[in-house]
Design a protein around this nucleic acid. Structure first.
Lengths: 128, 128
DNA sequence: AGTTCAATTGACTTTTACGTAAATCGCGTG
DNA sequence: CACGCGATTTACGTAAAAGTCAATTGAACT
């Protein structure tokens, strides 16, 4: 496991810009350490970026992604906080389950659409 | 099956604003008929709105949603067009499959996070 | 006819998530 | 040391997707 990654290494790996990574730092999503003014990203930052990209692909906003990331962190020490966090996690899970239903429905409709196209091709006597 | 829905009926049903529905009309996503200047939405428009909301929840942009909606429509008559459409559909499906992978991974991590919280509660001797 | 209440239109504003440009900094090489 | 080159900072810009506001306009009761 490498100790540090430069900003451009990560922009290449995740196909994002330096502006984007600095923006995520401003937003508190990652906290690279500094050598002088230069940012050094640790493996944990890299993992966070991976989670951020996942969240983005799922259509979550930066704020929602921030919330989700906080859930992955070490659980709080106080009982009330713990129960609150469990509730939040359950909410996000319900959110994701809704997305999953949406996804399956959309996939099913696309399947149907493709079938119609293939049928039409067959009607036209095209060798599929 | 009802013949027409008013704009406010639909804003209530889908919890969106009239501005939003008019915006979708400007964008060509729905085409309600008019009685004078008043918009009358048909069941097909209602179904389209349902698909739009699904697309939005999945994080698709308006343009992407437009593309997807066009795929649901009657397949084109020309062979080249048909093959192109099948290719597009396959691309969207791949997109959705990626989203599904992201979704499952995120759900798995949330499961883990919740487990940590519950464990911590048990450590603290809380009756779950 | 008067009033009320939803609907329309158009203009302007807002929020999110970055993009872009300009100036500066720091460091390794010839 | 001059130079190049990547990284940083600061500030302004922008596209998408609506939200908001104001001025009308029907439509429908009474």
């Amino acid at each position: 496991m490498r100790e540090y990654y430069s900003i451009t290494e990560l922009t290449r790996e995740f196909d994002i810009s330096t502006r984007t990574l600095r923006f995520y730092e401003d937003e508190g999503l990652v906290q690279p350490v500094r050598r002088g003014r230069t940012r050094l990203f640790r493996p944990s930052d890299r993992h966070l970026i991976r989670q951020i990209m996942r969240g983005k692909r799922l259509g979550f906003s930066i704020n929602e992604i921030r919330e989700i990331i906080q859930m992955y962190r070490a659980p709080p020490g106080e009982v009330g906080q713990l129960k609150l966090m469990i509730k939040r996690i359950e909410e996000k899970r319900e959110d994701l389950r809704q997305k999953r239903r949406d996804l399956e429905e959309t996939l099913a409709e696309l399947d149907q659409a493709e079938e119609s196209c293939v049928e039409r091709l067959v009607e036209l006597g095209v060798n599929t």
